[in-house]
Every structure is written in structure tokens, then in C-alpha cells.
Design a binder for these strands. Sequence first.
DNA 1: GGGGAATAGTCAAGCGCTCAACTACGCTAG
DNA 2: CTAGCGTAGTTGAGCGCTTGACTATTCCCC
Lengths: 166, 166
Amino acid sequence: MSASPSSEFLPTGDPRWLDAEEQKAWRAWLYSAQLLQDRLDRELTHRTGISHAYYEILVALSEAPERMMRMSELADRCLSSRSRLSHAVSRLEERGWVRRQVCTEDGRGQLAVLTDDGFAALEDAAPIHVEGVRRELFDQLTPEQVAAMRDFGETLLRHLDATRVP
Amino acid sequence: MSASPSSEFLPTGDPRWLDAEEQKAWRAWLYSAQLLQDRLDRELTHRTGISHAYYEILVALSEAPERMMRMSELADRCLSSRSRLSHAVSRLEERGWVRRQVCTEDGRGQLAVLTDDGFAALEDAAPIHVEGVRRELFDQLTPEQVAAMRDFGETLLRHLDATRVP
DNA sequence: GGGGAATAGTCAAGCGCTCAACTACGCTAG
DNA sequence: CTAGCGTAGTTGAGCGCTTGACTATTCCCC
């Protein structure tokens, strides 16, 4: 719907429609974001058997002290819901890459721990992922574009973080 | 995994790891993209019952001549697989928003046609979506950042398009 | 003009996600 | 102490997506 539709008497007043330039900018960003994430995810999944979502979990754990994290903390770090993370960790447990451990400080809590097998799987996958990001993203951009991408991302993150409603 | 892991003798040579600045840029972009898309999709879904993916289908049809498109064409336009689009159109058909029609020029083909009910649903949803995009995206950015976002998206799209492997 | 490859679309099985309900534990006020 | 509320995490049902196989039609060229 490129032009304003005919409904002119909305309760909240006329929406601030996007003009042609804004539409182009929005679509270019949206399509490129979807295609890029899709391509990287597919390459990683097909070459390593690890989806990008699972990869993020393994990375987070590998960077944590003693390679272990509380479930909720891990969920936040991976932009995941509690439920989604719980399911994902169960599946990673079945592969032997992660194990659960009760948290001694808080009887309600669980710790997700990266196993040696999980770390090895991550070591195999990391080069594939990094090469993908470089090939599809950084190799295509000038340093100025990279700087703008970061600036853009950080600006948006500040806003999204400030207006979060948990 | 922020630093190079210990596997130093890979068949393809050492991967070109991301340095700290590149990591920050990549993460900022990735997280902001995921959070933004997620927030817009949730708002649209909860307030209108239409997910962003379905919204895109309705928009594409509404802009097409006679509000109809070939299934494959529609799939490409919506960055969707044939199968996914076929499922989605079936569900939109159940809601009475789209109907299928055999293509007279090509006996294999099907046309997806937007119904009046579908157009009305889109008219209701469009202001919600546009306000979301404006509030979460354009209102947060300077004109320079918008220009950079578009430039970034178009650069990436050119690359992704040129290296597509169907 | 007839046989094989290519194309359009659908369908079924299985996986992963969402949502809401649920268990279990901790915290605090009375 | 204990009642009640908040927090941590899990679970199951249901939906949507992916994959790969399948049907039907068209295209191509010998």
C-alpha cells in the first residue's frame, strides 16, 4: 500500500504515512536484513548443523566464566524468551553440547554449562560463520559504511532498550 | 567466542576473524535488526491479528494490477519460498482475505487474488504498521542516518542479488 | 508431434517457536 | 512461622516454516 488508503477518519488521526523516499529506505533495509540473516543462517545450518540461534547460545556460554550461565541471563543475552531458550537447551543437551546443573545459590535456578563436545562443535562452526559474515557483509562495505552501520545499530539499540516493556 | 580459538590448522587456512570494532558493529546491527523486526511484528500481530509476513503478502497483492499475482511472483516479492507462500495463502483463504484462481495463460499456474475483505483488513492494519515503523525507526534517526541506512541496504541488496544461487 | 527436461504449485512429516498454564522456590510482612 | 506474592524455569498444545517428494502442465528439440 504505497499511498494513503481511503479511510480518513481514524480515531487517532491520520497516520504519518511514509513518503516515497522513506519507503525506499525502509524496504532496502528490511529486505537486505532479511536476506542477509537468511543466507548466513542457511550456510551455517547446512555446513555445520547448527542454526544461528543455537550458535548464539554456544557463543554466549563459551564466553561466560567457567562456560556456564543462568538460564534467564542466557535468554536475555540471546534475545530469546525463557521458554524458547529452555526448549533450545533441551535440544542441545540431547546432542551432548550443553548440560543443566542446579544453581546452588538459588534453588529455583538452573545453570546451562557448555560441555567439551559443545566447545568443539563451536570451534568447528566459528570459522564458517565468521567467513560468512565477512564475505556477505564486511567485504561489501566501505569503512564509512561500517561506521554508519554501527552508529545506526547503536542508536536503535538505545531506543529499543529505553522503551522496552517486559 | 571473541578471540581466535586454538584450531590453527584448518583446511582453508586461518579464517579472517573479526576484530573488536567489527564485532561491535556486527552485534549492534544484528541485535537492533532482530529487536526492531520482532517489536514491529509483535505490535502488528497483537493489534491486528496479522503477522508481518502476512501483511507483506496483502500489501504486495494490493499494489498489483487487479489485486492479483502469480504465486511464484508473489513468493519472490515477499522473500518467501513457494511452499511457505502456498501455506500462507491457504490460511489467508480460510480467513476470506485471498482466493486462488487458475491462471488462464499457464495451466500450471495459480493466481492469488486479494478479496474486498482482505483489502479492508489491510486498510485497518496499515496505519498501525506505518506508525510503528515511524515511531521505532524514522523518529529515532537523523536524515543522514536514514540516508546511510538506505545506502547500506541497497549496497547489500546489490551484492545479495548478484550472488544469489537459486 | 512425441518424449524428456524444466517449471508451477501442493502436500505431509517433522522441527522450532509462541503462549499460557504450571511447579518449585525465595522473599517479606504480619 | 507462615501466607501470599514474585521469580525461575519447564511443559504441552498448536501453529508456521522447511524439506523433499509428488502431480500437473509447458517447453524444447530431435
